[in-house]
C-alpha cells in the first residue's frame, strides 16, 4: 500500500500530470488558452510515431517470439469482451441512459486511449519499470474490436447501427492506427541502427511534447466538462471511475496469465482501463449517429482519462509490482 501511495505521490507531482491539471483548470476558469487544431494533431502524430518506433525497436532488440502473438490475441479478446461488461455496468449505474448511448459508451471502454498508454509508459520509465516493447502492437490491436461489440449491442437492443465499408475504413485505416503500426514495423525492421538515427528526435523531446499535448488534453477535457450539462449524473460519474477499475482487473488477469513483466502487466491494466476518445468517437459518429456524443466524450475524456492519469496508473503500477514480485 505504501508503495502505491508513494507512486501516486510521485505521479501527481510529475510535469506531465501538472500540465494536464493546468489545462483542466484553465478551461474550467474560461481562460482563452487554447491550441490550434493543426498543432494538437501535429503533437498527436509525433507521439504516435515516437511510441510506435520505440516499441518496434525494442522488439528488434529483445527479439520477437510466440508471446507477441498471444499478447495481441489476448488484447483482441479483451477489446471484444470489455464492452459487454461496460454496457451492463452502465445500465445498472445510470438507469436513464438509453441502449444506443450505453452501446456507444461501451465501445469506448473496450477500446483504448493511446495517450493514457503513452502517459503510462512515460511514468513506467520514470519509475525504472521496463515493459515488453510489443505492447504497442497490443494497443493497436485493441482499438477496433470493441467497435464491433458495441454495434452488436446496439443492434441487439434494437438501436440500429450500421457496419458498412465506410465504417471499416474509419476503424482499420484511421490515421492513428496506420501511423502507430507503421512506425512500430519500421522500428522493428530497422532496429538499433534506425533507433540511433531518429533518437535525437523521438527520445529527448518526447516528454516536453507529451507535457504540451496533455496541456491540450486538459483544456479539451475541461471544456467538455463545462459544456456537458445534464449528461453528468452521479451514476455516470460512478461508471467513469468504476469501469476503469473493472477493466484493469481484466487486464491484470490477462497480464498474469500471459506471464508479462511487472511493467507489461501495468501496461495491460492501463490499456484495459482506458477509454478511447480519438478512434471510437469518430466511428460512433458514423455508425451510431443517434448516440449522444456529449455523454461518451465527457465520460472518456472528462472523467476516466483524468482518473487514470492521476490515480489509476500508479495503482496499476503498484498492483502489478506487488503481484508479479517485480
Amino acid at each position: 500500500m505504501d508503495q502505491i501511495l508513494s507512486l501516486a505521490g510521485q505521479n501527481l507531482l510529475s510535469p506531465v500530470i501538472l500540465f494536464f491539471a493546468l489545462g483542466l483548470v484553465a478551461a474550467l476558469a474560461r481562460s482563452d488558452l487554447t491550441f490550434p487544431e493543426a498543432i494538437a494533431k501535429g503533437m498527436s502524430l509525433y507521439l504516435l510515431f515516437a511510441i510506435g518506433f520505440k516499441g518496434g525497436a525494442s522488439v528488434a532488440d529483445h527479439g520477437a517470439d510466440f508471446s507477441l502473438g498471444v499478447a495481441v490475441l489476448a488484447g483482441v479478446v479483451l477489446s471484444l469482451l470489455l464492452p459487454l461488461v461496460a454496457f451492463a455496468l452502465l445500465r445498472i449505474l445510470a438507469r436513464g441512459v438509453s441502449v444506443t448511448d450505453a452501446a456507444a459508451v461501451a465501445g469506448h471502454y473496450g477500446s483504448i486511449s493511446i495517450v493514457t498508454f503513452v502517459a503510462a509508459t512515460s511514468l513506467l520509465g520514470a519509475a525504472g519499470m521496463e515493459f515488453e516493447g510489443y505492447m504497442v502492437a497490443v494497443a493497436a490491436a485493441m482499438e477496433a474490436p470493441a467497435i464491433v461489440s458495441a454495434l452488436w449491442l446496439a443492434m441487439r437492443g434494437g438501436a440500429g447501427g450500421k457496419m458498412d465499408s465506410d465504417l471499416w475504413r474509419e476503424i482499420l485505416l484511421n490515421g492513428s492506427i496506420v501511423l502507430l503500426l507503421g512506425a512500430f514495423f519500421i522500428g522493428w525492421a530497422t532496429g538499433e541502427r534506425g533507433m540511433e538515427e531518429v533518437a535525437p528526435f523521438i527520445v529527448a523531446p518526447f516528454k516536453g511534447v507529451l507535457c504540451l499535448f496533455l496541456l491540450d488534453m486538459g483544456i479539451v477535457a475541461g471544456r467538455g466538462l463545462r459544456q456537458a450539462g445534464g449528461v453528468v449524473t452521479p451514476g455516470v460519474v460512478a461508471f467513469g471511475v468504476i469501469m476503469p477499475l473493472v477493466g484493469a482487473a481484466f487486464g491484470l488477469a490477462a497480464g498474469l496469465v500471459l506471464g508479462l513483466s511487472a511493467g507489461g502487466v501495468a501496461v495491460m491494466m492501463t490499456l484495459s482501463a482506458s477509454a478511447s476518445y480519438i478512434a471510437v468517437p469518430a466511428a460512433m459518429r458514423v455508425a451510431l449517429p443517434k448516440a449522444n456524443p456529449a455523454l461518451y466524450l465527457t465520460l472518456a475524456l472528462g472523467i476516466t482519462f483524468p482518473f487514470n492519469l492521476t490515480l489509476g496508473i500508479p495503482l496499476y503500477m503498484g498492483l502489478a509490482q506487488m503481484l508479479t514480485g517485480g
Partner: peptide, 16 residues
C-alpha cells in the same frame, strides 16, 4: 441543438 463546439485543440474528427 447538440451543444457548443470548437475545432481548437481537437485531435480526433468526432467533434469537428
Amino acid at each position: 441543438r447538440s451543444g457548443q463546439w470548437t475545432r481548437e485543440g481537437n485531435v480526433g474528427r468526432a467533434s469537428g
